[in-house]
Write a protein that binds this DNA or RNA. Sequence first.
DNA 1: CGATATTGATCAGTATACTGACTATCAGTA
DNA 2: TACTGATAGTCAGTATACTGATCAATATCG
Lengths: 154, 154
Amino acid sequence: MKDNNDMPGHLARRFQQIAVAVFLAEVGEAGFDLTPVQYAALATIKANPGLDQVTLAGLIAYDRTTITGVVDRLVQKGLAERRASPRDRRARELEITDEGRRTLRKITPAVESAQAIMLRGLSAREGEELMRLLRKAIAAGNDLSRAPLRDIKA
Amino acid sequence: MKDNNDMPGHLARRFQQIAVAVFLAEVGEAGFDLTPVQYAALATIKANPGLDQVTLAGLIAYDRTTITGVVDRLVQKGLAERRASPRDRRARELEITDEGRRTLRKITPAVESAQAIMLRGLSAREGEELMRLLRKAIAAGNDLSRAPLRDIKA
DNA sequence: CGATATTGATCAGTATACTGACTATCAGTA
DNA sequence: TACTGATAGTCAGTATACTGATCAATATCG
């Protein structure tokens, strides 16, 4: 039988598990309580003020049913605001708060240090190559998950 | 600000997400209802008859609190058995059932096809290189998660 | 031997992810 | 305009993962 170590699926799970643990450890040591998912959502809200939840989900490849809870927690922590859209009464517009901006700014060193720690077993060249291969595999499989990455609609 | 695509953590999450979706789709089409996690656990039980839950968790790098539920579901589906250990009354010995063996045998083609689909954007050489780099990064970060990979105790 | 530490398993609580269903709303068309 | 289809958001239910706690049993050491 094939070993676990020959299964890309198993390696994917394991690497992700380590990535999350490292992120939480670094960010926690810096005094913040933010998950990788919450961080990415908050950074994306800041970069795209007023976007709705479906667009946010598409930009970071989250499921639309997951994004509800993530935004709930960002709002509850005072980092983001959710308000009804004036143009589409189904949609909610998302906005980062000043507190959210402050948090993002102060948390950045911890986030970048976490990304480095995840790759600490690899040389700089290998780290680049790993990211290139992941990007390529992900691009080819983007539509295979329920939550594909999507551009902002024109 | 750094793009998501430059963050190994984000790429890890995305690749894993696709890997799980592909696994469930392939296995589902083959007529089985087994998650990647359940599959790995069942295959490991088969390869190590009579092992206890902590050892199982270590062999596939699962958290010990997660393994309880996974084994619950394997038992509930009739694929594995959990019984008290005669040597250590705290421990549960795990055994695969005939039904579990049959399922493993019949599911293998779907599992292997899933592993191929995950890498379909890459050449064979690139796929090998991706796995090598993941293994290397994982080895260096093994102890950073709460559920590190562990050998069977001597 | 007895006190202490460790270990195997489980539980409660929280946070992703997903399936599938549902409501409200909007868009396009006959 | 009425009908149809699509879309935004949410909810209930299930399955990983983790934190931290607890209980029972074993191991270790003075």
